[in-house]
Amino acid sequence: MTTQSPLLDAMSIRKRFGGFVALDAVDIAIRPGERVGLIGPNGSGKSTLVNCLSGAISSDTGTIRFDGRAIERLPAHQRTRLGIVRTFQIPLPFTSMTVIGNLTIPLRFAARHHAVGGTTNDVEQALLILEDVGLRDKAHEPSAGLTQVELRKLELARAVAARPKLLIADETMAGLSNSEVDEIILLLFKLNEQGIAIIMIEHIMRAVMAFSQRAIVLVAGKKIADDTTDVVINNAEVVRAYLGE
């Protein structure tokens, strides 16, 4: 296996809702350890793409290969086990559980399937992850009582606990203050250094610019640009789509 072979390789993904074409033959490829920003105006199909990749919904046509395996027919939990893990725009914690309890779910149900972490038990692993995201002191508190930014961190921590090779971070920063955005960006960099490829879906351009090596732009269900971040940002078509003229 060479370093050039992509971790994720999705080809001509199509999805229609009734008469509305949400995704129109979108290709997307991610290399191991890459940092990619996925941007586009509201309703451009970003969330649909995330849902198709993670298995929350199935695409109408197209193939998705991950780690050399065809996965487009697998249910979401099996994709998670293979290493595609997503977070949700609106955090969806398991509210009846403590913060650490939230992490034990992916540790037990996903991470076990690729036996990372050797013999250490779930609680120790969970505490290490919480340490990383800065929630260690909240470990035994009920997840229902967390603040917005803490919920975002829990969302990320829970995703990390599934031991992803590819993390899809769906608007993890929407509605956060500037300093909180910086906190999350740093956190994502830290995860990336551990070898996790990351797709960041974000409206906050500052975050995308700071974080991603490459940017993919969706407009009206079509991919209109896919290049290094500074090239994309100066692309006339992208500017037009964003500024709208």
Partner: peptide, 22 residues
Amino acid sequence: FIGRGLAAIRDNELAAECCGVP
């Protein structure tokens, strides 16, 4: 762990599925 998985389903089924819960 089955009980933990069921509790995750009760709290949020989509999140549970995406955490690897069958």
